[in-house]
């Protein structure tokens, strides 16, 4: 049970202000999810293969980077922020991620990709935003989440967004009713889940489908058939983001679009602070319908 926001910038002039525009959106969703928060930022600029990582305070990131550099034969640099670290890797991301997890199982890899960076923390969403400098971050688009934990524990790793593969991630509002069944199904197919969170199961489901060759839209169409319960999902991709509501569609979602941006939020009040909102086209996504945005503009598919 949660609040979701997403912002996709069309106007390059706004890229340096991405975080500054998203922070007030996240602030408006605090009441929907006071337990924890997280955000994914898609950086602008050239590709920079990065692992967004989390570990307990005191973890020796330099040692981990040195090990990774030696094992992969490519340079690794480290940027630490609080209990997070961004490892910029020179090698193939998939290899780097597997190597890191094998050597340091206590590290939680929150995301891997050439543009995505994910940060999350427990407690007041705005404190999380400040800790990780959301306001100062630039980028092309981002999604963020505030969580009111339903059944699984309030932990940093259990906060959204959940990675669903290279440069993709997912946030969820709702409650799945068959996630234990799906969890064992997915684990039998090689997905590794790191929390008890039902939303992570939805993320793993999409990862599995896309590993099997589905496009994002195909994976979401499959999700509509297999996920039971109530959900509004927002999925971040390298080039944009997608929104999907379950066929009953009780959990809220609002979309808004101007010439400069496309925004998604659980409630309009999160969109209200955006510049030019008074001229935005505003609508509610239809149930059971996949909406996705990319650099080519919006398309909606049944």
């Amino acid at each position: 049970m949660c609040g979701i926001v997403g912002l996709f910038l069309k106007d390059e002039a706004l890229f340096p202000r991405l975080g500054a525009l998203m922070a007030p959106m996240l602030a408006e969703m605090t009441e929907r999810g006071p337990d924890s928060a997280g955000f994914a930022i898609y950086r602008d600029g050239p590709p920079l293969p990065t692992l967004s990582c989390l570990a307990a305070p005191g973890f020796d990131w330099d040692a981990a980077a040195a090990h990774l550099a030696q094992a992969t034969g490519a340079p690794v640099t480290v940027e630490t922020i609080s209990d997070h670290a961004l490892l910029r890797v020179g090698s193939d991301l998939r290899t780097a991620r597997a190597t890191l997890i094998a050597a340091f199982p206590q590290v939680n890899v929150l995301a891997s990709g050439e543009a995505i960076e994910i940060f999350k923390g427990i407690g007041d969403p705005m404190a999380v935003a400040r800790t990780f400098g959301l306001e100062g971050r630039s980028g092309t688009h981002g999604i963020a989440h505030t969580r009111m934990a339903t059944e699984s524990a309030v932990t940093t790793a259990g906060s959204h967004p959940f990675s669903t593969g290279p440069d993709t991630c997912l946030v969820h509002n709702g409650s799945l009713s068959n996630h234990f069944l799906l969890r064992s199904f997915l684990e039998a197919r090689g997905e590794t889940l790191q929390t008890e969170n039902d939303s992570e199961v939805a993320a793993a489901f999409l990862s599995w489908r896309m590993r099997e060759g589905d496009t994002l839209d195909q994976a979401l169409a499959a999700a509509l058939k297999r996920l039971d319960g109530f959900y509004t999902l927002t999925i971040g991709t390298r080039d944009g983001f997608a929104v999907l509501r379950d066929p009953i569609a009780c959990k809220p979602a609002v979309l808004a679009e101007t010439d400069q941006w496309v925004a998604m939020a659980s409630e309009f009040r999160a969109i209200a602070p955006l510049p030019g909102v008074e001229n935005a086209r505003i609508w509610e996504p239809e149930p059971g319908t996949i909406y996705s945005w990319g650099r080519d503009g919006m398309r909606a598919a049944a």
Binding site: E28, E267, F268, R269, A270, I271, A272, P273, I282
Partner: peptide, 25 residues
Amino acid sequence: PGGRHAIACGLEHPVSVTIEGHTGY
């Protein structure tokens, strides 16, 4: 109004209220 919730709820009398902008729940 900024999309705020419960605006002008529970009114009992014949007043006229115009809200300039989007409202929440």
